[in-house]
Write a protein that binds this DNA or RNA. Structure first.
Length: 350
DNA sequence: AAGACGGGGCA
DNA sequence: TGCCCAGTCTT
């Protein structure tokens, strides 16, 4: 089954976009570095969340070279709270790669962009089209939703058939306008009008929309079934030495929250409380009744918060690295949100 | 094709 | 609560 885009649709879209588009710090920007930063931050993250992070990032690292010359810890600190920390690590790796291997020349071709860590089909098309105005269709969750409704595409959105179909439609649309703006117009329509709970009466494409004619807009796109996330339980420990310093441990460089610093902790399904305290020669002083709860994308944790003391003066090498940190210095370490919450509850942060 | 990977916004 | 967000990488 093939679908045809028309110039009428694209003209209506672009006219609407010209009228209704939001102001964003990166809108109108053509510096590929800045487009890159914005697009990576915007992966699975809403515009309003990204804006302050983007402003701070560009203030701190106005050019690509500033990122490459920075340290990974500084990069992670700048990313703290944004989530999906591999994005920041890849941005850093990519910056070093462009500066050192490509001599600071930002790649323009889709093929070269795809080689950069963290840049996949979406981000490569976004940089190629928005920074360099090349005709590559940018397909994100917004655009997928718009096309699924406009053309009544019944494939599951995660399937390769669906992605192919949508990419083809967007690619067709680029012949009737500047790729950099047509791509952004599709995304903006999905973000402002063709939302999960759509505002069809405000849509510039309502007369073209097949789902609208069939009164089944709410049934599209067809999403894969989502499994509900399991609940896990665990403990977080506040451990102070005689100098009132707090024990902080660093997570390993892969997996969940890679490289971030946190309070010593355990998940009971990996290591029960008794095993953990015994292995680390730890004594519990008292526990907080209030538990810290935190939801990740694929599971939820409920942490009990304990004051604890080390039974001896050594600490084993269960973690990659550990450090005694004065409470005033805690905030200089990139930390997971749930541990910032725990530190606040414990009165460690002013 | 399916899972891992954060955190926040919203009904 | 559940769903979604300018996705990518690994298995």
């Amino acid at each position: 089954m093939t679908y045809n885009m028309t110039s009428d649709i694209v003209h209506a879209l672009v006219e609407w976009f010209h009228r209704e588009k939001r102001i964003m710090p990166w809108r109108g920007e053509t510096d590929p570095y800045k487009i890159w930063v914005s697009e990576v931050m915007l992966q699975q993250t809403q515009v309003t969340t990204v804006i302050p992070y983007y402003e701070r990032w560009i203030d701190t690292f106005p050019k690509l070279s500033h990122v490459a010359e920075s340290s990974l810890q500084d990069i992670l600190k700048m990313w703290e709270g944004l989530g999906y920390y591999t994005r920041a690590r890849n941005l850093y790796r990519g910056a070093v790669y462009i500066v050192n291997v490509l001599k600071g020349n930002f790649p323009e071709s889709r093929e070269e962009l795809l080689k950069i860590p963290g840049i996949g089909p979406y981000t490569s098309a976004a940089i190629a089209s928005i920074a360099f105005n090349q005709p590559y269709g940018v397909v994100d969750g917004n655009v997928s939703r718009v096309m699924a409704r406009l053309y009544l595409i019944g494939e599951i959105t995660s399937s390769s058939r669906f992605k192919e179909t949508v990419t083809n439609l967007v690619n067709q649309s680029l012949q009737w306008g500047a790729p950099r703006w047509v791509n952004q117009a599709w995304m903006e329509l999905g973000a402002l009008v063709c939302t999960p709970k759509p505002a069809c009466s405000a849509c510039p494409l309502q007369s073209f929309c097949e789902a609208r004619q069939h009164l089944c807009v709410e049934n599209f796109p067809v999403k894969p079934n989502r499994k509900k996330s399991p609940v896990r339980e665990g403990a977080i420990f506040i451990i102070q030495n005689p100098k009132k310093e707090i024990l902080l441990v660093q997570r390993r460089e892969s997996g969940l929250l890679p490289g971030l610093w946190e309070l010593p902790n355990t998940l009971y399904d990996e290591q029960p409380l008794a095993d953990f305290t015994m292995a680390n020669d730890l004594l519990l002083d008292r526990s907080y009744i209030i538990k810290a709860e935190h939801t990740y994308s694929h599971f939820k944790v409920i942490f009990e918060l304990f004051d604890a003391t080390l039974h001896s003066d050594w600490w084993n090498d269960y973690w990659d690295d550990f450090r005694w940190v004065h409470p005033n210095e805690l905030k200089s370490y990139p930390r997971p949100k749930v541990h910032i919450k725990a530190m606040r509850i414990a009165g460690l942060l002013s």
